[in-house]
Simulated scan of single mutants.
Amino acid sequence: MFRAQLHQQGQAPQRESSADGAITQSTPVTTVPTMIRGDWVLFHPVYTPEELKAVQILHKDTKTMTDKIAYGLVKLARAGFDFVSRYKHKPLPPSHNMTLQELRNEGYLLDQNAWLNRILFLETIAGVPGMVGATLRHLQSLRLMIHTLLSESENERMHLMTFMTLRRPTPFFRALVLGAQGVFYNLLFLTYIVSPRACHRFVGYLEEEAVITYTRCIRDLEAGRIPEWENEPAPEIAIDYWRLRPDAKLLDVLYAVRSDETTHRFVNHSLADLNTTTDVNPFAFREPDMHVKGNKIGFERSESEKYVQESHDLYLQEKQKGCN
């Protein structure tokens, strides 16, 4: 067990007082920035070029009946959504002489509008699990994982806001999203009350599919199969959020989003192996880099315990430096 090993890290910093007992005040400065630069968002990783390329398509083996049910539901949902959206992504026929448009018409490839519709719908749903988990843990006063789950939900919202700069959804599309969100939120809410671990496993498998989808999109774009996006500049909101180069392209955004989904895959599979009532959130103060998250499906419980202890030791080292 590794209960509350890092409880001291949550202590508020001591405030200094002046000689007359008043709290020391810093020099007054304006609180109105000349340009918003992302300090309005929760913690999220900013990736190096090497980390962006370190992502692998991985799968968590189903060991328990809960795992099998969670994975089966994800595959069922994926199959249903693929059918409705006419998404096939079939292997290209060998030695084909088909044009790009013919490949799209036959279901081998998606055009930029089909990709965007798919991404927008997925990202509107993806923000639900983190918010559900954080809400329930807040109501139960189980603060061990709230920040991590809220960060995940907001991160998915930023994905949505980024891609919405490329296309505004129609009223019909918004109605479909609203209905899907309502059903998904309530089902997940009720399930999380019964078994948080099952929900985290479900989300872990869901994020596996997200990594696959973005990997396929990246491969198609790099292979010249989505020519409409080859020179598409990255939206300003994406450049700010992920600290991309000023001349970044949409391809850079897709790499960053895929890395985010890889983080969610890793975190949720790790949380699913914990006792979510008593165990400390191993990612409350830091996370492994993408060289770990991109090549490992998640921490086993013993690995999470070790990671918590390492975080605790690092905290004590930093605290000691501050006292010297």
Rank of each mutant, 00 (worst) to 15 (best):
T148R: 04
S302T: 13
E305Y: 09
V257G: 04
Q14A: 15
R157E: 12
K293P: 11
R301D: 06
R15S: 15
L92V: 07
T135A: 02
E207P: 05
D313C: 10
H138F: 06
D313Y: 12
E230S: 13
G224I: 05
E156K: 00
V253Y: 02
Q140E: 15
P45G: 06
E207Y: 05
L166I: 07
L52W: 10
F81Y: 14
A134E: 05
H44V: 01
F189A: 12
I212K: 14
V203P: 01
Y47E: 03
P282H: 02
D313M: 13
A248H: 04
T165W: 06
G80Y: 08
F299C: 01
A22I: 07
T148P: 00
K53H: 10
T165V: 08
H269Y: 08
N268G: 09
Y192A: 09
A256Q: 12
Q14D: 12
V203W: 03
E102Y: 10
Q309D: 14
R143W: 03
E318W: 14
L149D: 09
Y192H: 03
M131P: 02
T34W: 11
L187T: 14
P93L: 04
T31I: 04
P33D: 03
T191Q: 10
A223Q: 11
P169M: 00
Y241T: 03
A19P: 10
Q11L: 14
V280D: 12
R174H: 07
N324D: 06
T99W: 10
G127L: 11
L73A: 13
P93A: 07
M131F: 08
L136Y: 08
S141H: 10
A210H: 11
P169W: 02
K53P: 03
R37W: 00
F173W: 08
H312K: 15
G10I: 08
F163M: 02
D82P: 00
L92H: 05
N268A: 07
Q25W: 07
N268T: 07
P246Y: 03
Q14P: 06
L58N: 01
Y241K: 03
G179Q: 04
E305K: 06
V203F: 04
V203K: 00
A234C: 07
Y205P: 05
T124Q: 10
W115F: 13
L58K: 02
D39A: 13
H147V: 08
L221W: 09
P171D: 08
C323Y: 15
E261F: 03
G130D: 00
S26D: 07
F163R: 04
Q56E: 15
I23R: 14
K249W: 02
G21V: 03
I193G: 04
T66M: 10
I237F: 03
R37K: 09
Y71H: 13
L166T: 05
L221K: 06
R265L: 01
L251I: 11
I69F: 10
T276I: 03
S18W: 01
V177M: 06
K53C: 09
Y47N: 02
E303K: 01
M65G: 14
Q309P: 11
R3D: 09
L176H: 03
V132M: 05
Y315Q: 06
G204I: 00
M161F: 12
F299Y: 06
T124W: 09
G130E: 00
D273P: 00
P282L: 01
E51C: 01
F121T: 08
H44S: 04
P288K: 00
